[in-house]
Design a binder for these strands. Structure first.
Lengths: 228, 228, 228, 228
DNA sequence: GATGAATGAGTATTCATTCAT
DNA sequence: GATGAATGAATACTCATTCAT
């Protein structure tokens, strides 16, 4: 069973651990989270909480009741995503092929990131990473550590790779995605392939880089959602 | 056309490309550029133009006379940097060892980026990529292309690498630098080494990854210049 | 009218004067009053009703059921204090020395005020003076009147002093206390002494007090710009 | 010549001492000050700067350009008033009758206060009293000190009165005025008379004033629970 | 040309009060 | 009756950009 099951029992958020949210409050909380997810995904953290409230169909005050500030909302969102990542890592660990497990985790995490501006921003700019996020990251790291050390034990991965390198690799992929969005949302796969080749302890041959590179024109015409 | 014509017509706004600026105007332009470079380098784009003007010792209006808006100023700055990069690339091209030339360019460009928040921001978030920047990038790409194809011709670099991959590699390094700043400003070298290993057409052994990885604590305690 | 009628009609809002509160409702009312007393005493009216409710261990809604609004709560509190003042005045009246009785009342009331921000605020800024407070003040004034007239009859106090001057003297002391708090919470005694000297009848030349005193009605109807 | 002359030369406010405000800027500054004076006088500090801006016929930004925040605006206003008080004190000092001089100053200052809510609020709640106000008070105290000591030397005033008692007497008058406003704006005169009687040295029995007076430093550093 | 004054839409957050559960 | 969730007007302050001097 994956860690997402835990989510349904203890809803993350402000509520005292003991008492579950009232029916309507819980519904609003979900609406807010959903609205924030959409908005953050589309346009990143620049969205105002007023906007989130409007999209969620509630008053601003309600948003502030549930989440003391923007960061807290981002945290809650991030935690859901981290949970998804932990699930991914756990599935990858189930793969009998140690190398394939690690690589597929990198790819799936990359796919998750490439679909979500908000997640990328949290990952890359997280001043936002204080509270629950730290805890969430701590849940992820152990699994990732297993993924890495297991692959190293099998001689499939270079010996000097460290578990903490994995999140940084994702940061790199996130950056590349942001760079080429929306024209080439899949470009990150090209660079993942490059990096993955660098992860091998020694290489016989080379796997062709997937995904066409940016054309010179594309390099010049990056157009992304304004970020101020 | 004579210079007296300029007096009678006086087109407001940016000077026509051909017409040189008046002596004092040119000096102001340089001051503004210098001030902006310092400020952006230290704190990124969040600096206000009022601040730039103050540091430059001119009024805001003067800034706006020289640069239609904040982006244009960033563009101009970027152009300077691109010039530096072009220089770097040309020096790298002078290296008789094709592989070493390419790698050293990647490293030097990385060093440039890692020292300059503003440059990283322009590179990564350039909604700012419209004006002079495009032209500037066009100056860079040919040299980089030579660097890459020359190395490929020598069999030193994987055949499917494309010149446009180079800027994206720099984007990745910039992201990683931003992530770990200010605690570990050199961490990008670690990932450059990884990528460089991935660039080889086939590998006998592995070069140890330089620079210690982030500790788990560091991964959780990223502290970067707030970007709002 | 029987109590069953109350059940069928159930007028929402404050209980009719005659009808006693249900046991638990009464307990809640006391808790709220106690919490508000503590909080207002410490920090004045800036405390939110949410806070009062939390400290009282009830929901905000309950606070609003008992007290139509913040002012009403303040009023109720003030009434308690007025009762304390009435007690004080009665004790002072028991003093066989007419002069000492009056002076000790002024001092004891001053001490009460100096220990309680909330009381001072009600006294000084009472937009709050509408409801029960009026009634409460009416209970105080007669006793104060006795205190004053008795002392005047004995020739211990200047003849032109009016009972309504007493609360205004307390207002002055409250203001001075607020002014110097928390550094010098007892400074009001200095000014009380000054004023008390001014109250004595025998002086070389007595200047008649100019300007008619506030009428009892005026004392009750102070209306000032709300200050939040 | 009184100190108000100084005002026309060095306009108080943000401007660098050396350079005078541009004509239009100066006009706006005056408009803002005038609007703020009116509004504060009518309704105290609760007025928003948006309102001040509207009444002054300028944008909010302009208000903020001249005065970093509400306090600074209040300071500037207060300084004008302090200047007026200093003028008053100087005129009072010119009175050959020492007793009359002191009493008339108390009365005139009281009149000034009774006409201006804003001034009373600054006087009574000045968290606002940090910057220029402190300096301004320092200008006032010396003159007041002369007024007091001169009267004492002449035997016209009780020996234990201290110069710092004077502002506190004004605080008391301000409180009384606030209390009875708008019904009886002159009521403060009644209490001034009472206090003045208490100031005389010759009475049957004089009770020494208890409690040490505030030191000049304490007068300047009043710290009270903010009331917004 | 240069200056810096003016603008005002925009943002995060608070809190008295109402109302569904 | 009690609860606490929901509301949203209100507030202080910022900053890119325009325009009068």
């Amino acid at each position: 069973m994956t860690s997402s099951a835990a989510q349904s029992i203890r809803p993350p958020g402000r509520a005292k651990p003991g008492r579950p949210l009232r029916r309507d409050a819980a519904r609003n909380r979900e609406r807010i989270l959903a609205a924030a997810a959409e908005l953050f995904t589309e346009r990143g953290f620049q969205v105002t909480l007023d906007e989130v409230a409007r999209r969620a169909g509630v008053g601003v005050g309600t948003v502030y009741r549930r989440f003391p500030d923007k960061e807290a909302l981002a945290d809650a969102l991030f935690q859901d995503r981290i949970t998804a990542l932990v699930d991914l890592a756990e599935q990858a660990r189930a793969d009998p092929d140690e190398w394939a497990g690690l690589v597929s985790f990198l790819a799936q995490a990359g796919a998750l990131l490439s679909a979500d501006v908000g997640l990328r921003q949290i990952l890359m700019f997280a001043t936002y990473g204080q509270d629950r996020v730290g805890e969430a990251r701590s849940r992820l790291l152990p699994v990732v550590t297993q993924l890495v050390t297991r692959a190293q034990a099998a001689g499939a991965v270079r010996a000097d790779l460290r578990p903490t390198d994995i999140p940084l690799i994702e940061v790199m992929l996130a950056a590349v995605t942001d760079y080429a969005r929306p024209a080439r949302p899949e470009i990150w796969r090209r660079y993942l392939a490059l990096i993955v080749d660098g992860l091998q302890p020694s290489r016989r041959g080379v796997t062709e880089l997937p995904v066409a590179p940016l054309s010179p024109a594309e390099v010049e015409n990056v157009m992304r959602a304004t970020r101020r």
